[in-house]
Design a binder for these strands. Structure first.
Lengths: 203, 203
DNA sequence: CCGTCAAGACCGACCAGTTGGTAGGAAATA
DNA sequence: TATTTCCTACCAACTGGTCGGTCTTGACGG
């Protein structure tokens, strides 16, 4: 079981994440974070070396949770079929369903938030966000490689670009759904990517 | 010709936009803006009622410029062909070319920046950003309606969702290109949408 | 079973610098 | 001269961050 320190640390990270997702990084003060997580200045700076250090740990935590989430969906897709194309289609479908089940509009992506305020963050955090995007590229591209090996592609697209498009559609969908306060938009955009893949690889 | 006041006003807006695009809204202080545009506090507050008022005028200016830009591309496409599908494809192609010609990575979208910090902005600005996204939806959807009227669609997608996808691909592409510092990514994503449209409407 | 003692966890007052914003007056312009 | 345009000086609130001290926990010896 986690120690007391680990629990408060986690509580700080959790409240900080939700605050930053809705107010931005510069728009969220340490005072706000400690106020909402019921800790004091001293307590905060005992656990983190500063605001940038907090950001670093936030991204790491975010990427870890994200990896678990995506891997779970892929594993579920593998259980359901052996065909690489169907696996990829099912993955996207499952992702869309998960996004549709959210109680309200998607809370936002930390990588996107930090990218749009990257000048406020040190090189350390910037590298982490880039690593995150690259890990998504790799994850999707690996599956798409299998699809390409099994099916002819009806347009000349690099697997990398096709993989990036899924990330882009997710990020774009999150942004639009937040801006318009329309929670259906994101899953619909994902199903649009789904349709693209079908057209691209099916006769 | 513009008066002295109009010129300084424009200079403030211009430097404020580039500062906010790279540092975020909360991450950009009024002191920074006045420092870089060579004016003083008093001068700034003579032209704008406050930071939020500046943001409001920034979005309005941004959307106006954007409309001119998009309309220009559509007019060019209309000159080149009468076929609605080809017009749309050419529009996307021209857009991709324009994005490819940028000297470095895309500077970022104000609507996106403000959406990710919407809690810092008053209802006024939030409405403007939403209006902007809706105007893009309408612009793209109008053209896509003509395409749908002339061609069968090989998947059941609403024109609105298809229009939103272009906005999403642009926003997602901007984000990824900034995060990875890769200027080629955005035009490539646009050509991906181009390929999708072709597959969707061509036999 | 209990005292003890160091390490871990946390507190809250304080600091210098920055924040958005104001007030009153001085140039510049028409 | 009247209006537009801009400047200087100032303010209260807040910013990220520091520091000395206090409480809590758990391992260990008696």
């Amino acid at each position: 079981m986690p120690t007391k320190g680990e629990r408060t640390r986690e509580s700080i990270l959790s409240t900080a994440e939700s605050l930053i997702l809705s107010n931005g990084y510069s728009g969220t003060s340490i005072d706000q974070i400690i106020g909402e997580s019921g800790i004091t200045k001293g307590g905060f700076f005992y656990h983190f070396d500063g605001k940038n250090d907090l950001a670093k740990h936030l991204v790491m935590r975010y990427l870890e949770q994200d990896e678990v989430f995506f891997n779970g969906l892929f594993e579920r897709a593998y259980e359901l079929t052996d065909d690489p194309l169907q696996q990829m289609l099912i993955f996207v479908k499952l992702l869309a369903e998960q996004m549709a089940e959210l109680p309200s509009t998607h809370p936002g992506c930390l990588v996107a938030t930090f990218t749009y305020e990257s000048n406020q963050l040190d090189e350390n955090v910037r590298e982490l966000t880039a690593d995150g995007v690259l890990s998504w590229r790799t994850l999707f591209a690996n599956q798409l490689e299998k699809v390409v090996a099994a099916y002819p592609m009806r347009a000349e697209q690099s697997v990398e670009t096709l993989a990036d498009m899924l990330t882009g559609v997710i990020e774009g969908g999150i942004l639009l759904s937040r801006c318009l306060e329309n929670k259906d938009l994101l899953p619909r955009q994902l199903m649009q990517y789904h349709a693209y893949l079908k057209l691209l690889f099916q006769a």
